[in-house]
Design a protein around this nucleic acid. Structure first.
Length: 145
DNA sequence: TTTCTAACA
DNA sequence: TGTTAGTA
């Protein structure tokens, strides 16, 4: 009764040119080129030197984070450094949730996230629920079909 | 139309 | 960083 999130979203296929990335993030194309020159960000490897830059989804995230930090008052070098640590935290979070998430189950009309076994003996399962912006948890026996 | 580099403001 | 020039 559980399912996996369909792996139909391939983020590697989300690619943007400089004008698009600029409009998406509010960072000027001039800034994007400058940041690349300073090695703060990088575009997908270009064959020719004079061809249009192509940015991937992860660069979009990086630029978005840097932009937010700049708006908060960080100066560019500091913003880049902090973005780097935020990026690592995000990566860890993604890996954690990917490993923890075991599908969705509906009980009595309520939707629960199966977050895997709660104990090493595998007799209990941790369920998470999201409601009104709040996360809550329940531990229930594993064989509660 | 968009992007590129280079250069000046 | 913004802008502009002259291209591809």
């Amino acid at each position: 009764m559980k399912y996996q999130i369909p792996n139909i979203v391939d983020f590697d296929k989300f690619v943007f040119r400089i004008g698009e990335l600029s409009r998406m993030t509010g960072v000027s194309s001039r800034q994007l080129r400058y940041w690349e020159q300073r090695d703060y960000i990088s575009a997908i490897t270009r064959d020719d030197q004079n061809k249009a830059r192509v940015y991937d989804f992860y660069t979009f995230l990086q630029v978005s984070i840097i932009k937010k930090l700049l708006d908060e008052g960080y100066r560019l070098p500091a913003a880049v450094e902090k973005m780097s640590s935020i990026e690592k935290e995000l990566s860890l979070s993604r890996k954690f949730f990917h490993a923890a998430f075991n599908g969705v189950e509906v009980v009595d009309g309520q939707v629960f996230l199966n977050l895997g076994y709660f104990d090493k003996a595998k007799t209990q399962i941790l369920y998470g629920q999201y409601e009104n912006g709040q996360a809550s948890y329940e531990v229930r026996p594993a064989n509660d079909d």
